[in-house]
Computed example of a mutant assay.
Amino acid sequence: MFNLDQAISAWRRQLAAGGIKTPEVLDELESHLRDDVEQQVRSGTSEEQAFNSATQQIGQTNVLKVEFNKVGLAKWWQLPIKLKGMLIRILGREQPFPFPDLNTFTPRGLQTLELAREEAPRLGHDFIGTEHVLLGLMKSEDGIVLKVLRKAGVDNSAIKAEIERFVGVGPVHEANMAIPYTPRARKALHLAAREANALNHVHISTGHIFLGLLLENEGVAGHVLRNLGVQTETTREAILKDLAGS
């Protein structure tokens, strides 16, 4: 008779033998495995079938080892969506960039963060990256960023299409209040706070958030904007000019 706990223990031993030995990583993988199994069982699948399906979705040992070894590389976003979420949760426990106090954001700035949180599950992602923050900016009611991008010949639909082409789209799921920010997204917001402070602005607005994305520039948002022909320095100067007059 199939025993789920025994099967998971054997699976963990197989992962460890294949080179994935960090307990924190193994715990994170097991957590995802159990979540997948639980969801499938609730839908009427047997535990054994659910376990086999879930392990196949997460990946084989040799593939997982290669993918986890890619952490820190510039093209980390090209990892499968499921693995990206796992890596972000593991890495997110020790963040080099503190998240700005929410009280320091303008209402439109907060709206952008909320829209980013909604965009992530729409794309089937269980993390908030620079791409989701950019999509949040495009959906925000503040006109500074939209005006500057339109002058550069870029509109909402072009950015949305390029992001989806760049990172891929997974199954849509419900938004999670605890969804984590990627290290690059946190860095972008940290830079946004720094820009606001440098301009002697009390609050972080959508313009500052966009400046943070431009300055971070190695995240998905930076690559997408460059792919669409947005010139970093020219756009930055235009945003600064608008902020100076606000």
Rank of each mutant, 00 (worst) to 15 (best):
T22M: 10
V172L: 11
E141R: 12
F105T: 03
G168A: 13
I144M: 15
T206I: 05
N227P: 05
K82C: 08
A178S: 15
N3G: 14
G92P: 02
N103C: 06
P171L: 09
D155P: 04
G153E: 04
A74H: 12
L87I: 15
V66M: 08
I58H: 02
R108S: 11
A161I: 07
G18I: 02
G129P: 02
A178L: 13
V202T: 12
L137S: 01
V133G: 02
E141H: 07
E237G: 08
H125D: 10
S53N: 14
I128C: 06
H173D: 07
G85D: 04
E119P: 06
F68D: 04
G143E: 14
P23D: 02
E141W: 03
G168Q: 09
I239H: 02
W11M: 08
H125L: 07
E119H: 13
F51C: 04
V148E: 01
I90H: 05
G109C: 00
A185I: 05
V202D: 10
P121M: 09
E131C: 06
H173G: 08
I128H: 03
D5A: 10
L215N: 15
L146S: 13
E118P: 07
I8P: 01
T234P: 08
A17Q: 15
L215R: 15
F127A: 13
V25K: 02
H223A: 10
I20S: 04
K151F: 07
I90G: 05
R226T: 13
Q56M: 08
V37N: 00
H203M: 15
F99C: 05
F105C: 00
G109S: 01
L146T: 11
G44N: 02
L83H: 14
V133T: 07
N52V: 08
D101W: 04
E118H: 12
Q60N: 12
L102K: 13
I8W: 04
I128Q: 05
V41H: 00
L137Y: 03
T45K: 03
I144S: 12
V154M: 04
L26D: 00
Q60R: 15
V37W: 00
A10N: 14
L123V: 05
R165E: 14
G18E: 07
F127I: 08
G168N: 11
E216A: 04
I81F: 06
R236M: 12
Q39L: 01
G136K: 03
E174Y: 11
S157L: 15
E141C: 04
L228M: 06
A54F: 02
K151M: 09
N217Y: 09
L64E: 00
Q231L: 11
D36H: 08
L215F: 14
K151V: 07
L240D: 06
A116L: 02
H32D: 10
T45L: 00
A54E: 01
G124L: 02
S9V: 14
Y181E: 03
G219M: 03
E164D: 13
G219F: 04
A178Q: 14
N103Q: 12
A158M: 15
V63N: 08
I88N: 11
D142R: 05
R13E: 15
